[in-house]
């Protein structure tokens, strides 16, 4: 199978994720889109590692997963507390730092 297909899939997933981050308002959805972009990147790393026959990409993919896991914990906690105080998960309304 042509490894470039995986790259196309990765690009497609990343675009979907980026689109979601830019256009969705719900913090949970935005958050999932971010995860989607991370996984798209992971897919690209693994594919390139496979193409080049090295292990570097594989290793980086592991690091990304670890970071993503930590990010989920913190991100969800932040979203929870914002929801708890404002009764809304809209990221447009969470602009307290602006002024």
């Amino acid at each position: 199978m042509n490894p470039m297909n995986y790259i196309y899939l990765s690009a497609a997933l990343f675009s979907i994720g980026a689109f979601g981050v830019l256009f969705r308002r719900n913090a949970i959805v935005v958050f999932m889109c971010v995860e989607l972009m991370l996984n798209a990147a992971n897919l690209a790393f693994v594919t390139f590692a496979r193409i080049n026959g090295t292990l570097d990409g594989q290793v980086v993919a592991f690091f990304v997963m670890v970071v993503a896991a930590a990010e989920v914990v913190i991100g969800l906690a932040i979203i929870m507390s914002i929801f708890a105080t404002r009764r809304s998960a809209s990221i447009d309304e969470a602009n307290l730092l602006r002024s």
Partner: peptide, 14 residues
Amino acid sequence: IQTGYTRSYSLVML
């Protein structure tokens, strides 16, 4: 420039 909208920041980043 600082609008406070997360989405606009992400757009700039992208």
